[in-house]
C-alpha cells in the first residue's frame, strides 16, 4: 500500500489546468504545421499560421490559447494499491480546479441546472471525472479542459449491425459535415464504436487523449481511421470553414465489443485547441 496525499493531488491538478490552457502539445503543433504546408488553399495556410502564432503568444505570455478554457474533464487511473490520505480524492481534484482556474485567470464556464437557472458556479466546478481502478501503486491524473463549441457538435447514435463499416463512415462524415465551421476546425475527430451508449461516448472522448495522428494499434481500425480522415478532409470545409483540405488533423477510433443487436457510434469533436496534460503520482 502506497500513500498519496490529497494536497499533492490538488497541487498537480491546479498546475495542469493552467499548463493545458497555456501550452499546446507538440503533437498538435506538428500536425498544424503539416496542415499548413500541405493545404492547397492560401487562406487555409494563413489561418493555420495564425493558429500557430496564437500558440506561441499563449505560451510566451501565459495567456489562455482560447477564452473558452473549458469544462474540466478529468481522467483518473487509480492503482488499487494506492491509499489516498488527508481527505477524499474528488474533493482534492475539485480544489485543484478551483485553484488552477482562479490563479491562472482562466474563464469559469460551468453553470448549474442546465435547463433552467444556468447560474455560473464561479469556480469552474464541478468537473466531469472518469475513474478506472487499475493494478499497481500509482495514480495517473489527466486534465483535459473541453470547450463548448466543439462539444456542442459531437453526437452519439446506435446503428444497426447490418450497416457495418459503411454505416460508420457515413455517420462520422455526416456529423463532421454538419458541424461545418462551428467546432473551430481543424478538428480532431474522436470516434467510439461499440459498447453501450455511455461506453461508446467515453471511448470516443478517451481517443482524444492519444498523440495526434498516432494510429490505433489494430491495423483494421487504423485503416478505418485513414479512410475516415481522407473522407472528412474531402468535404472541403477547411480551417475555420473558409475552405481547404485541412478540416481534420486526425481521426482517432477506439472500439469495444457490443451487444449482438447493437452498434453504438459516438463522434466526439475536438477543436484545434486540443488541450490535455497528465501526471503520474
Amino acid at each position: 500500500m502506497r500513500e498519496i496525499e490529497t494536497a499533492k493531488i490538488t497541487q498537480e491538478v491546479a498546475r495542469m489546468c493552467q499548463e493545458a490552457n497555456f501550452y499546446l502539445g507538440e503533437d498538435v503543433i506538428a500536425a498544424l504545421k503539416k496542415g499548413r504546408d500541405n493545404d492547397t488553399s492560401d487562406v487555409a495556410k494563413q489561418v493555420l499560421d495564425q493558429i500557430l502564432q496564437n500558440a506561441e503568444i499563449a505560451a510566451t505570455e501565459r495567456i489562455p490559447l482560447c477564452q473558452d478554457t473549458g469544462l474540466a474533464v478529468i481522467f483518473i487511473d487509480l492503482g488499487q494499491d494506492v491509499h489516498v490520505t488527508g481527505g477524499d480524492l474528488y474533493t482534492a481534484i475539485e480544489d485543484g480546479i478551483r485553484k488552477g482556474y482562479e490563479e491562472g485567470y482562466l474563464r469559469k464556464s460551468v453553470v448549474t441546472q442546465p435547463f433552467s437557472a444556468r447560474v455560473n458556479t464561479k469556480d469552474n466546478t464541478p468537473a466531469v471525472i472518469h475513474t478506472r481502478i487499475v493494478p499497481g501503486d500509482q495514480l495517473k491524473v489527466t486534465v483535459a479542459p473541453k470547450g463548448g463549441g466543439s462539444e456542442n457538435m459531437s453526437r452519439v447514435t446506435v446503428l444497426k449491425p447490418a450497416q457495418g463499416k459503411q454505416g460508420v463512415i457515413d455517420y462520422v462524415v455526416s456529423v463532421v459535415e454538419e458541424a461545418g465551421s462551428n467546432p473551430c476546425p481543424p478538428i480532431i475527430v474522436g470516434v467510439g464504436i461499440g459498447g453501450t451508449i455511455e461506453q461508446t461516448a467515453l471511448i470516443a472522448k478517451r481517443s482524444l487523449l492519444r498523440e495526434v495522428g498516432k494510429p490505433n494499434p489494430d491495423p483494421e481500425v487504423a485503416d478505418l481511421e485513414a479512410e475516415l480522415l481522407k473522407r472528412v478532409n474531402a468535404l472541403g470545409t477547411g480551417p475555420q470553414g473558409f475552405g481547404g483540405n485541412t478540416t481534420a488533423l486526425a481521426v482517432h477510433v477506439e472500439t469495444y465489443p457490443a451487444h449482438i443487436a447493437s452498434m453504438p457510434v459516438a463522434v466526439n469533436i475536438q477543436c484545434h485547441s486540443a488541450r490535455h496534460k497528465e501526471a503520474v503520482l
Binding site: 496564437n54 503568444i57 499563449a58 490559447l65 465551421s181 484545434h272
Partner: peptide, 29 residues
Amino acid sequence: KGLRLPEVKDAMKKHKAVYMAAIGGAGAL
C-alpha cells in the same frame, strides 16, 4: 464564428448587415 440560419442571412440582406468571422481558438492572438 460558425454557421448562421437562413432567416438570419435573409435578415442581413434585408437590413444591410454583414457577418464576419474572427479566428476561433485564437484568443491569445
